[in-house]
């Protein structure tokens, strides 16, 4: 599964970057989201995959038993997911606002618009 997941992550990265190369603002943001998902999964994978052992201390015990999933990447990813939600919301609203002002979502046209200001 690890190999499969590693390939999956590569595909997510490739898809995200490909979308960021496009001229459309919406595609740019889809690309950023895909890239973010890829990064989250990469961190998760590198913390090693463990099946059915969440990092939760069992009833009556005072610490985790030997084989458990690494809680550190999980905490990192949780933070990343929530923060990227803030980023995505802001980016989406930015598209909306940009479109309202310049009436295009073509990044190149926004570029030239800049010069006429």
């Amino acid at each position: 599964m690890e190999i499969l997941l590693a390939i999956m992550i590569g595909v997510l990265y490739a898809a995200g970057i490909y979308m960021m190369f496009r001229r459309s603002l919406v595609k740019l943001i889809i690309g950023i989201i895909l890239l973010g998902n890829g990064a989250n999964l990469l961190i998760f994978l590198l913390g090693r995959l463990v099946k059915g052992k969440p990092p939760i201390i069992a009833e009556g015990s005072k610490y985790l038993s030997e084989a458990y999933a690494d809680p550190v990447p999980q905490a990192l990813i949780l933070t990343a997911i929530v923060i990227s939600f803030g980023l995505q919301a802001f980016a989406i609203v930015l598209i909306k606002r940009t479109y309202k002002v310049v009436k295009t979502e073509d990044l190149d046209q926004i570029n030239t618009f800049d010069e006429f200001e």
């Binding site: 929530v82 939600f85 803030g86 919301a89 989406i92 609203v93 909306k96």
Partner: peptide, 13 residues
């Protein structure tokens, strides 16, 4: 904070 942030964003949009 999370409730405030999310609802501000969604309601505003």
């Amino acid at each position: 904070v999370v409730v405030g942030v999310t609802l501000t964003i969604i309601f505003t949009i």
